[in-house]
Design a protein around this nucleic acid. Structure first.
Lengths: 125, 125
DNA sequence: TGATTACCTGCGCACTCTTGCAGATATCAG
DNA sequence: CTGATATCTGCAAGAGTGCGCAGGTAATCA
């Protein structure tokens, strides 16, 4: 949470304790601080990117995005990843709320459940 | 590199060695395989996401995207990250080709150098 | 030249994450 | 019930990573 305060007649966004050391360029430092935005929002996006950062998970997500609700076995065959690794990856993605699985007899079919991630995947696909 | 081949009169995209185990749904497995696309492309995106996955680096990138060419010291002050950590993060980003620094006297100003990442940052900002 | 500023880098610690193996659970077929 | 299929889950190994500390380099100023 950055607090606004005045200094030299200009609104600054840098907390006082950090501003003690002289900046190279006040204006740019303030624009940078403004560009960061809400730390919680940044953390949430970092978490999303972290989920997409593993080649195996990214491949699985691209497959799920393309093939809609799809069984674990079919994902393993389509991607060439061992079914154990697929199951582990899906657990991580499920816990994070990025995918969700629905049981149908012996089969569990997975689909995307985070619209932001879906949009991101369509953008890079 | 997936190869197309015929089976049961339908074009499949699953390599033969994986297709030995029976699929739950052939059609969906093939759509999934098609959705994966080029593995090299997927790996490149996974690498990009990995760079964005660290909260510190993501914060720095948002700051750089917002404030254009900006000095290391100003980045440290604006983000509240130690200058050592900023320098380390910038080295990683520089090596990956996401940012580039230009020297101006004692100061090195950093700017974005990967349009894809820039677009991504503007999208979430 | 010597001091200061701005930035970079090697090292080491602590932490996290992915994966394979082995075993457990759940559902269906006979 | 028995066996087979589909999926899930602990555990341990191995690799990778971010950060602080201390020290190094480059450029400016007195």
């Amino acid at each position: 949470m950055l607090e606004r305060f005045w200094q030299d007649g200009i609104v600054h966004l840098i907390p006082r304790e950090r501003a003690q050391r002289s900046t190279i360029d006040d204006h740019q430092a303030c624009r940078a601080a403004a560009g960061i935005g809400d730390p919680a929002r940044t953390a949430a996006w970092a978490r999303r990117f972290d989920l997409l950062a593993d080649p195996g998970r990214l491949t699985l997500l691209l497959a799920i995005e393309a093939a809609g609700p799809i069984a674990v076995t079919d994902l393993a065959i389509a991607t060439g990843i061992s079914d154990t690794a697929v199951s582990q990856a899906l657990r991580v993605l499920r816990t994070a709320g990025v995918v969700e699985g629905r049981r149908d007899g012996r089969v569990v079919r997975y689909a995307m459940s985070d619209p932001e991630v879906s949009a991101l995947l369509r953008r890079i696909g």
